[in-house]
Amino acid sequence: MALTRDFKLTVSERVAREPEFAKALLDEAATLFLNGEPETARLILRDLVNATVGFEGLARETARPSKSLHRMLSSHGNPSMDNLSAIFGAVRRQLGVQIEAHAVKAA
């Protein structure tokens, strides 16, 4: 029988061990949102929140209820742009990074 490991635990441990991995997840979530894949972006962002600031910490930092934040970042969530901006801002500050968007010509 193959050994399995909880995905969330694996992500949390890797984020703690490799700051560049956490930054790459944040970059991927932002890129997915901007490229029209919000469902996947929300799930990546949810895993990143769990691995960094946590939902209770995110609730304090964004002045939004933890339960609402959980719903927003579920696969069927629908956060407003204000809420999404607050979430990205909190995670960005936690990681100590800036987010910049660059346009690339489509082939």
Rank of each mutant, 00 (worst) to 15 (best):
D82Q: 12
R64W: 00
T40A: 05
T40Q: 06
G89E: 07
N35W: 00
V15H: 03
Q98S: 14
N78S: 13
G77M: 09
T40H: 06
L26Q: 09
A2M: 04
M1F: 06
P79K: 09
M81I: 15
R92M: 13
K105D: 13
L73W: 01
L48I: 08
A41I: 06
F88R: 09
S66Y: 00
V15Y: 03
L69M: 07
S12F: 04
G57C: 12
V15P: 05
E39V: 14
S12W: 08
V104C: 08
E20C: 05
N78D: 14
R71I: 05
K105Y: 11
H102T: 14
F7L: 11
P79R: 05
F55M: 11
P79M: 03
V15Q: 09
A29I: 07
G89K: 13
A103I: 10
R42Q: 10
A2S: 12
S68A: 14
S85G: 15
G89T: 12
V104T: 15
L3H: 05
H76D: 15
L95H: 01
T31V: 00
A106R: 14
V97I: 07
T40V: 10
T52F: 08
T62M: 11
A24V: 10
R93G: 00
R92L: 04
A59T: 02
L48A: 09
A16V: 03
Q94S: 02
D27H: 13
S75W: 06
P19S: 05
L25P: 00
R64M: 14
V91H: 06
R71F: 03
V11Q: 07
S68C: 07
S74V: 04
M81H: 10
R42G: 01
G54W: 03
L69T: 09
S85M: 07
A103K: 12
V91A: 04
E100F: 02
L34R: 14
T52I: 09
R14L: 04
L95Y: 05
P38Q: 08
N50V: 12
V91Q: 00
G77F: 05
A22F: 04
V53P: 08
A2L: 09
A107C: 00
L3D: 07
T10E: 14
G54Y: 02
T52D: 02
I87A: 04
A101W: 00
G96D: 05
R64G: 03
A16I: 03
I87N: 02
V53W: 00
H76M: 10
A29K: 01
S74C: 00
F21A: 12
E13K: 14
